[in-house]
């Protein structure tokens, strides 16, 4: 029920403003009419992209270690435990952590800091789902690879990763879908910007922060834009969820 009522409101209120200028124009100032949030869409996509660049390689390497190299070791069980704890980590704390570690060091809010804070949130999901996907690769397939004269490294790269790939990608897509809508970690890291992104070292706009800012403004135009931005954000998340389903579907 809540899901459908929210969707209904989004479609009615947000759908009304849906047009191409939303995607191409900058957010309007106080009493201006019209405008869009192209920069926020771009900012969200760039930061999610940066977060993926950081978390996917690290996550998959960690998962290889957990699933294949040393599944029983102390390091592995500790990592697994920490990853599980981190999946429930309050996202605002990820923002605070990156504020201290990156923003203060760089001296500025930036897309990089935003991307890293999202990466912190993605990492545990990527690690745990990729480990699970690799464990699903049947023992007999690994035996076959070794029996063909593969080294352990070749077995992992040529058999375990390709076979587990659909599952790994599903996990990645779910992680992306989760962080695409996050606003809390971006508050302290990417901040917001009314202009187009021209450097990843500068404060960057994102859809979720735009919604947060505009929804509390006293102007009708901004509030309408916030609704439209919510609809666009939900659609983006939906697309990633659908992609994860499509990729994860067992092939015949």
């Amino acid at each position: 029920m809540p899901l459908f009522s929210v969707l209904y409101m989004l479609i009615v209120k947000g759908g009304a403003r849906l047009s191409t200028e939303l995607f191409t124009e900058l957010p309007p100032a106080g009493f201006e009419m019209g405008g869009g949030f192209g920069n926020a869409i771009l900012g969200t996509l760039v930061m999610v992209g940066l977060a993926s660049l950081v978390s996917i390689p690290i996550g998959i390497l960690a998962a290889i270690y957990l699933a294949e190299l040393s599944p029983m070791s102390k390091v592995a069980s500790t990592t697994r435990f920490l990853a599980k704890v981190l999946t429930g980590f309050p996202s605002i704390l990820a923002g605070v952590f990156v504020y201290a570690a990156v923003v203060l060091a760089m001296g500025s809010y930036s897309a990089i800091a935003g991307g890293i804070s999202l990466a912190v949130l993605m990492l545990p999901t990527v690690i745990l789902t990729a480990e699970e996907a690799m464990k699903m690769v049947p023992r007999k397939m690994k035996d076959a690879a070794l029996g063909m004269g593969c080294t352990r490294t070749q077995m992992i790269w040529k058999v375990v990763l390709p076979t587990g790939l659909p599952g790994i990608l599903t996990g990645v897509m779910l992680a992306v879908a989760r962080v695409a809508g996050e606003s809390a970690p971006l508050l302290f890291t990417a901040l917001f910007s009314n202009y187009w992104l021209n450097s990843v070292r500068e404060p960057t706009a994102s859809l979720s922060i735009l919604i947060y800012n505009f929804s509390s403004m006293p102007f009708e135009n901004q509030i309408e834009l916030a609704w439209a931005a919510s609809l666009v954000l939900v659609l983006i998340v939906l697309v990633f969820n659908i992609l994860s389903r499509l990729i994860g579907r067992p092939r015949t």
């Binding site: 007999k140 076959a144 029996g147 058999v159 390709p162 076979t163």
Partner: peptide, 19 residues
């Protein structure tokens, strides 16, 4: 690894790769 390239193996359960 070299030994296994000269002495091939067929297992109890058919185990083709998923390719």
């Amino acid at each position: 690894v070299i030994v296994r390239r000269f002495i091939g193996m067929v297992f109890q359960q058919p185990n083709p790769f998923s390719m």
